[in-house]
Design a binder for these strands. Structure first.
Length: 212
DNA sequence: CGCCAGGGCCTCA
DNA sequence: TGAGGCCATGGC
């Protein structure tokens, strides 16, 4: 078995399924898209309250985001940090989605969808890939800060976003469920063990790591 | 109190 | 193309 699959199996065995991007409403897809923006460089705990505020005001809705005053929107998402920037981004996306329906996006190939999303100001590679994977359920691997740090320590040094992503695409079955679970497992590892100051003693993949 | 979190944009070499 | 500054709250 290759190393990428081996690590997945070990993480899954020790952490179990992660149940990511909890879906609680009919417009779950839009909620995930909004969540992907709000969680940029931000802990999910802080994002949760912002999403609850949006829900209370029925703002998981493209038209309503288009209509609401930007400062008012910023105030509602304050807990997620960078709230002025993120309010702009949400408005950019809502504006874009009002012209290009989500329904139309679903029919695009991964490459076409990614290109479209990257045209929106505020969406970079990771956010685009998160949306493709978690909102559109298409197989693309999300590379975040945890993934970079973990695989740097494992021995895959100085890889760019695209290089690291290719590593996963080459070695894994192209299945969005696997990609979803794997990314979530890496976040769990990064939060609890492979932290900036790592706790290596109880790390479930210590045997795979170059540091030890 | 300091550190950091499920990034991206802009500027400047 | 890559490094550095900036955006900012809340949990620990």
């Amino acid at each position: 078995m290759n190393k990428i699959n081996l690590i997945y199996n070990k993480l899954y065995k020790s952490f179990g399924p992660q149940h990511w991007w909890p879906v609680t409403s009919d417009n779950a897809r839009l909620e995930i898209i909004i969540g992907a923006i709000l969680t940029q460089n931000t802990a999910w705990k802080n994002v949760k309250r912002a999403i609850e505020n949006l829900k209370k005001n029925n703002l998981i809705n493209i038209k309503k985001i288009n209509h609401i005053n930007r400062k008012e929107l910023a105030n509602l998402i304050k807990s997620s940090g960078y709230y002025n920037e993120k309010a702009k981004k949400l408005k950019n996306i809502a504006n874009f989605l009002s012209k290009n329906s989500i329904e139309r996006f679903k029919k695009l190939s991964i490459e076409e969808l990614r290109k479209k999303l990257l045209e929106i100001k505020g969406i970079g590679p990771e956010t685009a890939d998160s949306m493709i994977l978690y909102a559109f359920n298409k197989p693309i691997f999300v590379i975040d800060a945890y993934t970079k740090r973990i695989f740097e320590r494992l021995g895959y040094k100085q890889r760019t976003y695209d290089e690291l992503q290719k590593l996963f695409h080459k070695n894994l079955e192209s299945d969005y469920k696997i990609f979803n679970e794997y990314h979530a497992l890496l976040v769990e590892l990064g939060k609890n063990y492979c932290k900036k100051k790592p706790d290596c003693e109880k790390c479930p993949i210590i045997k795979c790591c170059n540091r030890n």
